[in-house]
Design a protein around this nucleic acid. Structure first.
Lengths: 149, 149
DNA sequence: AAGTTTGCCTATTGAGTAAGTCGACTATTA
DNA sequence: TAATAGTCGACTTACTCAATAGGCAAACTT
């Protein structure tokens, strides 16, 4: 039940972009540095997220990446599905990659996998980047009040 | 968030063994046939589950595998952990493979992964092989009354 | 217009894992 | 003692993951 490194990096990068949403385009290099993600690897990840429609970009100096819509409109599930595919533990219970199970009869395990899928999806779908930003800001306030820019 | 084939096969095999728990040792071959799992592959899986303490075996004619304790005492989480390792999406929130996160401060995502892990674990830990057997029997009764042996 | 900055795209690599196969060995029982 | 069945380790094949690299295209600067 593992999340790929790519999926984790993508989540972190999107969070970073959500945190700086108001500040306009962000360079790959800066996101890479802020979140400690290999630059060339991050490049591919952002590109993938762009192709999926969650990011837009601008070239040249003052260029960079930015969310294609406000953080409220993008869930963690959206991000992970782009990077890692369906959330379901196995395909026969996936909503996005539904595949007919040859063993239709009394496959009790199928019910269990579906339950699992729904539990995962319900958490990741209702959690938006805006939620993460909010949590991030409130936890930062509690621990220390440093405002690095 | 994928379950490996091995994890799925293991679950199916254990369910099969739970269904036939009263009948004594079951041959690899029969489990393989009943659940449509490659025989030599299943061999390894059962061996692994044996080493983990969930199965016992007997050699020679009338030999085979059987659960080391009643189906109530083995959860699906137990089985999957043997085959695929920790249930957690990433190691820093795993109970079994806990690893210190270098980015301690305000890692909001960590909270989310933990929530996800707990949701998965709660389902798979409370579901025992006995539960699956029960569900299997009641659903079999509903759809048809064929009793293949 | 030239040059710099930045993202865009494709290919490649190296490591590791996943899924499955194989051959020989050992214990049990008829 | 022959047949049955599990045990063990090695091997294979294909694929995926994580990352790197090279050149291209757009945009901004001077």
């Amino acid at each position: 039940m593992r999340l790929s490194t790519k999926g984790e990096y993508a989540s972190r990068a999107m969070l970073e972009l959500a945190l700086r949403f108001a500040a306009g385009p962000q360079h790959i290099r800066d996101i890479s540095a802020a979140q400690d993600i290999p630059e060339r690897f991050l490049e591919q990840i952002l590109l993938q997220l762009k192709r999926a429609g969650y990011l837009r970009s601008r070239k040249g100096p003052q260029g960079g990446y930015f969310l294609s819509r406000p953080p409220e409109g993008i869930s963690v599930a959206d991000v992970i599905r782009v990077m890692d595919g369906p959330l379901a533990p196995i395909d026969c219970v996936s909503v996005t990659a539904h595949e007919i199970c040859p063993k239709e009869d009394g496959c009790v395990l199928k019910g269990l996998w579906k339950e699992t899928r729904d539990a995962i999806a319900s958490i990741l779908e209702r959690t938006t980047l805006a939620d993460l930003v909010e949590r991030s800001r409130s936890s930062r306030k509690k621990t220390s009040t440093r405002n690095r820019h």
